[in-house]
Design a protein around this nucleic acid. Sequence first.
RNA 1: GGGGGUAUAGCUCAGCUGGAUAGAGCACCGGCCUUCUAAGCCGAUGGUCGCAGGUUCGAAUCCUGCUACUCCCGCCA
Length: 561
Amino acid sequence: MKEQLTVLLQQALDTLIAQGVLPADTRPQIQIDRSRDKRHGDLACNIALALAKAAKRKPRELAELICDALPADPLVTRTEIAGPGFINFFLSADSNQAVIRRILEQGRTFGTSTTGAGRKVQVEFVSANPTGPLHVGHGRGAAVGDSLCRLLAATGWHVASEFYYNDAGAQIDNLALSVQARCRNVSPDDPEWPQDGYRGDYIRDLAQAYLRGDTVDAEDRHVTGSGRADDLDDIRQFAVAYLRREQDLDLKAFAVHFDEYFLESSLYRQGAVEATVERLIGNGHCYERDGALWLRTTDFGDDKDRVMRKREGGYTYFLPDVAYHLNKWQRGFERVINEQGADHHSTVTRVRAGLQALDQGIPEGWPEYVLHQMVTVMRDGAEVKLSKRAGSYLTLRELIDEVGRDATRFFLVARAANSQLTFDIDLALSQSNDNPVYYIQYAHARSCSVMRKLEEQGWQWQPQSALQHLDQLQEEHEKSLLRQLDRYPEVVENAALHSEPHTLANYLRDLAGDFHTWYNAHKMLVEEEAVRDARVALSQAVGQVIANGLDLLGVSAPEVM
RNA sequence: GGGGGUAUAGCUCAGCUGGAUAGAGCACCGGCCUUCUAAGCCGAUGGUCGCAGGUUCGAAUCCUGCUACUCCCGCCA
């Protein structure tokens, strides 16, 4: 609808240019906004305010001229000039009601677009090292990252999801030593316990499984434990597989899927790390100091230079990170979005600097980052304390078991990533309108219930004939709902474009609120057939949009509650 | 000390990327009411958008400088 209006406005401006009212070189950005206030019509345009100076006229006067030059169109019933010079458009009832037809015809595809045009985008998220179960912070990454994938796919991108992890570094050695200690019945408080060992109880379970000779099947590896406590390498293999399997189960419980699991070790095996170092040295961005090899990242906006190769010869994590991202670039991803905890923010500049130093024509802002802030968990009005030293923390799976997948996903995705999040378990569990998940799902269930009730009463409802009666939707509540429904495709588009899935969550809460209000105010299953047809059509449309939107958040839309 | 993030109603948070009188839910207050599903419904009150400047027709939104909270700042990952 905005597009049609833009065309009309452009024609009006062309006319004014031809008449000499506007300078010939006017290249205006036509911006059309939805009116917040009903009295300001349906859509508003600020073009007269923006062009007033160029036209050397008062904004209202120019607005008048634009309106006069506007071609007539059945879409627009009338225009009005308001405030400092806004042009308000009042659209025909017909065009407002047409959204229901679009929704019912398009069904599950309503709200999707082809904006991405099949271009390749990769979303990397979670990327937890296999040293323990996933915690709530990983859950936030999983919820946000997976929703981003869904949003991008819905807007026409070719999406690949990826999980990156280190299966061979110092932390994994540490893991193996911890498991070995447990195999030998050493406890975290014993003097022989390894320095910085992983103290959690899961290490004990892991050790027992190893000693039993269990076989573990993870998504990307399969290992049988030998049970030999002396074989540290075997323990390492087993421990990584075991914890990867645990994480797979966590992700499965969360309905999150990855197309690719990428191993840091593979970069070394393929020589990608060496090749990257040589390239960086060859480009003259490196120097030696104190026996270490440094990259001059300050040339690319970092606040200090970074060590790439340590004095003892090993590489810092930063170098494989650069090699990894070069690999992503070579795989042809036009966009790469990395979803990570905000504590990794310092790597952003570093990785981008490294990529620039490679001189491969990689854009400066590539890759994109979505960084999420910390999650704290509340239960019974008090913060659930997480003790890293004792290795005790609330795992993602425990949270899902307690409040369910839908509530967990919704709560973790419903807040802007870059603000801190408090997860209120009591709220997530409550079946009341305080709980947005319940509130939204209930709106969907209600819309389904109306249909069931209709059939019980022996009434017929056919979309084709119902669509003939949309002019019956005259109540204010119905008009607000129509406006709300009409926004949905834009909401999806913007959420995908700006990597902000929380805006979709907010939208759904608003839509559900409008639906409940309408439901309370007006009976749908009235005797009068035309009115009933139209209202059921609206109810169906709302249910469809809620189902579509919830799906993009990875939340189910139950038909009965 | 350097950097990231945040700051909006008593509380939890929105605010469509610069638009018109800043919104919602809780809480509080006043009415109504038990329904096509069982979250009751309607309304009122409540704001120096952290502070101070700047940019322009117009700023919660952009820029600069402060303040508070928070996270990061290793030849760990």
